[in-house]
């Protein structure tokens, strides 16, 4: 590798705003992650509830959504919700695409959050729920005060995996016309084929940089938060 190659590589960053593109992925991840956490928790509660209709609704959602490709869901959000039904989240054209992609990502990952949480629920002995019922707590109070706090602690590692998947899957937002990292990469490769490998490694490294801390954090959290029995 000569000095000329390095110079050409460096000039990429004057031409393209790589950091801004990654920032879009981070925003997609944070927004969709938060919504998916809330929705996924609600789904998990439905799936352990005593009402058969709620259990059915929860498991149907998970089965349908988990088995649909994410690209299809995101394209549906953009072309179906916005294009066909005219649903908008923002007057700004690009912001609107951003939020439609967030919705698609959240809806999809909620199914995985639900399953991760259910694996957490399985770490909680039945006796905990029975003791909660025995002191007069109803289902919702038992779930909120006794089952879920322990289930979350038992599900830190699988929830971390969902978050890692979400970071990487945020690139699918490109299918919904959101300008983010993978879209920028495609653009850069098209305009600067002279440094194609360097571009590729730059983006791969960028995602590794985002994902590795999540893995480290969840490993240490799940160790620290383990419920001693």
């Amino acid at each position: 590798m000569d000095g000329d190659y390095l110079e050409r590589y460096r000039s990429l960053f004057d031409q393209f705003d790589v950091v801004a593109a990654f920032w879009v992925n981070i925003q997609l991840t944070l927004a969709a992650g938060l919504i998916a956490l809330v929705l996924g928790t609600a789904l998990a509660v439905m799936r352990i509830s005593p009402a058969p209709s709620l259990r059915w609704a929860g498991s149907t959602y998970v089965t349908l959504v988990r088995n649909t490709p994410l690209t299809v869901i995101i394209v549906f959000c953009v072309l179906g919700l916005w294009g066909q039904l005219g649903i908008t989240f923002s007057d700004d054209f690009n912001r609107n695409f951003f939020w439609l992609a967030v919705l698609g990502l959240a809806v999809y990952h909620a199914a995985f959050v639900c399953e991760a949480l259910r694996s957490g629920v399985n770490t909680v002995p039945v006796g905990q729920a029975e003791a909660a019922r025995a002191i007069g707590l109803g289902f919702v109070a038992s779930a909120r005060l006794v089952i879920l706090p322990q289930a979350f602690r038992g599900a830190v590692a699988p929830l971390g995996n969902v978050l890692i998947a979400l970071v990487k899957n945020s690139t699918v937002a490109a299918a919904g016309s959101v300008a983010e990292a993978s879209g920028l990469m495609a653009e850069m490769i098209e305009f600067r084929p002279d440094v194609i490998l360097a571009i590729f490694f730059t983006f791969a490294f960028g995602f590794v940089l985002l994902v590795v801390p999540i893995g480290l954090a969840t490993t240490s959290l799940s160790r620290r938060w383990t419920v001693a029995r």
């Binding site: 905990q128 003791a131 602690r153």
Partner: peptide, 14 residues
């Protein structure tokens, strides 16, 4: 109104 004490205690672990 009806208290219950279990063989395996079942104290809330968290």
């Amino acid at each position: 109104q009806v208290g219950m004490v279990f063989q395996s205690f079942n104290l809330f672990a968290h």
